[in-house]
Design a protein around this nucleic acid. Sequence first.
DNA 1: TAGTGGTCTAGACCACGAT
DNA 2: TCGTGGTCTAGACCACTAC
Lengths: 259, 259
Amino acid sequence: MVDLGLIDRADDRPPYRQIAAALRRLIAAGRLPPGEKLPSETELIAHYGVARMTVRRALQELRGEGLVVAEHGKGVFVRSSPPVRRLASDRFARAHRKQGKAAFLAEAEVSGHKAAVDQISVTTERASAEVAERLGLGGDGRVVMRSRRYLANGVPVETAVSYVPESIAAGTAIASLDTGPGGIYARIEEQGHQLGRFTEEVTARMPTPEERKALEIGAGVPVITLVRTAFDLDDVPVEVCETVKVSHAFVLEYDFPAR
Amino acid sequence: MVDLGLIDRADDRPPYRQIAAALRRLIAAGRLPPGEKLPSETELIAHYGVARMTVRRALQELRGEGLVVAEHGKGVFVRSSPPVRRLASDRFARAHRKQGKAAFLAEAEVSGHKAAVDQISVTTERASAEVAERLGLGGDGRVVMRSRRYLANGVPVETAVSYVPESIAAGTAIASLDTGPGGIYARIEEQGHQLGRFTEEVTARMPTPEERKALEIGAGVPVITLVRTAFDLDDVPVEVCETVKVSHAFVLEYDFPAR
DNA sequence: TAGTGGTCTAGACCACGAT
DNA sequence: TCGTGGTCTAGACCACTAC
């Protein structure tokens, strides 16, 4: 059993915070490594000599921080993190596409992860107001919508939905399940829209229940949302991609001139 | 009094979630506008006919989502959100500095917020291993460390700590409380280091207890961390700035070529 | 002083997982 | 079946705020 310490009634912090702090320290120090089971509520109650609610408040604080995950009927476990993936802003370089690699897979190769894609679905529908605006489409603009989920080493890390104007996607592999070598962007360039620049809008928030399910994360784990718009050399928007990433699995890197 | 609804014992959601959902709906619908006081715990207990802990769990869920803020001795209030601030990657343009404006204030002016800076502290110390590495300093490299907190319309939205090598900062306004017109970057350029580019590393996570206190946010509100490194025209790193931003107060915008 | 939220106790019953 | 966490009750005392 790990060293849990004791509650100091003279401490100005309430007992539940002291218990949370003790557990947090053990996790940070690696004495409770990822995947390890914490002492059960019953054990913590006996050790600290407090009521169950007090122990539960401490555990709840750690859950809120995303440090631990409770599994009903099994116990409370230290959360194991997926590998961190650094996304550099040159990850869409044409050189990668020329080699037949989509961005996610090319990046995974550099990072040494085993990348996979699943839950692919492709439909054609009317663009939402927001997507239509970003793509510069009229009121009834139709788009091919591709959604999929990315996994690193078998762990879900990101969901993505791409929207390409039907005028560009129609009759190409963009509208089929397999987009072919180089991915969507290679197909778009083949349609005569050579890519010129990207914009990305990044923010973070707590996931919706649906996102928690798709990404297999507990409450208390934030997500990064990234909306990328691709423009061709005439500055015409040719794709919008909305992604939701598990926050602790990504570091986004950007490099820009001082101007 | 607002319409709280009642608990449906046939509902598969537990009572505390039903209560949370009812309050959440009222907030979303604007029936409980920002700044408004929620019914007190006593009132909710009487209305729903449940124990106090049940009501508190519901309120706690809302607090975790950042929707409400509890004020001891006063009540629970709907959180008033700080305005969303869009940060474009040209926010450090030299043109702003030429006009004597630091980046945060220049951006606020565009967005129409009332910006403020407080909790400024300046010290000189040995660089941490991470900062030393980013700045390309040797083992005992010393840096001027400037920390401060930014507020938009009086609400804390960001803390920032800048590190500038002492060799650049010594004897300049960088080492004094007021950095003068144009901020740190204007002073660095005056020292002969004209800025060439920036890199930014972005991720998101849950805040530490200290960050929660400094940013005055509840436990369920994620933060965006952004580490920016400024390089001069010779590609020598001249500043590292670590910021922690309240996630829902920011959208980061980046624009980069397809290459 | 009265009302508010913050913390705690000592029980209870339930649902889930492993055996 | 037993141990686990999930939810709930019905009290208690404390600290903070407003009057």
